[in-house]
């Protein structure tokens, strides 16, 4: 029987779905339920992680400290995780205090070709005696050979696992097997996979990742996450049970946690909307969804056109300002005929 660690992104990637407006009550209720279900890692924070509350990506209702403190108070068995993107979060402004709030696992992320910017944050985490994972975001934008080079850099900085993110939900299962397999064969540390459901493949892709050697899988209860959402965690747990992949999570209690999401966090759970489907097809960061919808209304243009244009320009996560520029250009182009 294989063992897989499930890392729960509900209270972090799920923040995108709520425009980063999670309340203390919601964090407390969900963290307790996830803890009771035996979820190994519970991530908390702004959708783009620590220090990312901004006009560019969206302002959080709660600051990072309030979110971490609330989660910490409600977790006993589960480890507390955070997502950190260098370029948004600095060691002095953000990471240093996170350890005072009892963070256990730091997932240091960069765009999939830029791993060298994670060196100092990974080293600092290890120096604090905490667990550091490297995360390669938007991994569909680089070939597997490049992903391996970048993952090897993270391994050399001290990362204890590398997570490949399908941030745009652009993969099919064969893509996942190819990439995860290539990394799992060559790295000394475990490989993880983080799915988005824009093409309806999130759970299937998570299974493919494990078949190819992944030992960490990210999920979110009811799929709560950016765009079309993440791999629905309770479904992943159930499917893994069928496949005799051990997660250590109590299925009934995972279902209870998922019900809390639907009852107390978000009535309309993420689904594959027309805009999210186009986001996956165009290979654009899922977190752009709400911003694209807003800009489309503001400038009276088609959100699908915005996504395809952003895809053609190969924008990466963090470039939300491009959405406004593209929307303005599309409007201008239409007005000029």
């Amino acid at each position: 029987m294989r063992n897989v660690i499930i890392s729960d992104a509900t209270l972090r990637d799920g923040s995108h779905a709520l425009s980063h407006q999670l309340t203390k009550g919601q964090i407390a209720a969900y963290a307790q339920a996830a803890d009771a279900a035996g979820v190994p890692i519970v991530e908390v924070g702004h959708g783009n992680g620590l220090g990312a509350s901004s006009l560019q990506v969206g302002l959080s209702l709660l600051d990072d400290r309030e979110m971490l403190q609330t989660a910490r108070e409600n977790l006993s068995r589960s480890r507390l995780g955070i997502h950190v993107i260098p370029g948004f979060a600095t060691i002095n402004n953000d990471l240093r205090f996170a350890f005072d709030y009892g963070v256990d696992v730091v997932r240091v992320a960069s765009h999939c070709t830029e791993a060298d910017i994670t060196e100092r944050h990974i080293s600092f985490t290890r120096e604090q005696g905490k667990e550091a994972y490297g995360v390669l975001m938007m991994s569909h934008m680089a070939p597997k050979e490049v992903l391996l080079d970048e993952a090897l850099k993270m391994q050399s900085y001290g990362a204890e696992a590398v997570i490949i993110m399908d941030s745009a939900g652009a993969y099919l299962p064969t893509d996942v097997m190819d990439r995860v397999g290539h990394l799992a064969r060559s790295l000394k540390i475990p490989v993880g996979f983080h799915a988005h459901n824009n093409l309806g493949m999130a759970v299937a892709n998570s299974v493919a990742a494990v078949e190819a050697g992944a030992r960490i899988i990210d999920g979110a209860s009811r799929g709560l996450g950016a765009g079309a959402g993440n791999a629905q965690m309770e479904v992943v747990v159930a499917v893994f049970e069928r496949l005799q992949i051990k997660t250590g999570i109590d299925l009934y209690k995972a279902l209870d946690a998922a019900d809390i999401v639907e009852k107390s966090i978000m009535a309309s759970i993420p689904y594959i909307s027309s805009v999210s489907l186009v986001s996956g097809l165009s290979g654009v960061f899922s977190g752009f969804s709400k911003h694209v919808t807003l800009a489309a209304i503001e400038y009276g243009v088609d959100p699908r056109d915005i996504f395809f244009e952003l895809g053609a320009r190969k924008v990466v996560g963090g470039q939300e300002d491009k959405i406004v520029e593209v929307a303005m250009e599309l409007k201008d182009r239409r007005e000029r005929g």
């Binding site: 901004s54 370029g87 990466v316 963090g318």
Partner: peptide, 22 residues
């Protein structure tokens, strides 16, 4: 707050800077 993104697109993108205020 300051944010910096690196974009690996080829052909390379020009430097762009956006300023927001509340």
């Amino acid at each position: 707050k300051a944010i910096l993104n690196l974009n690996p697109a080829e052909p390379c993108i020009d430097m762009q800077t956006t300023v927001y205020a509340k």
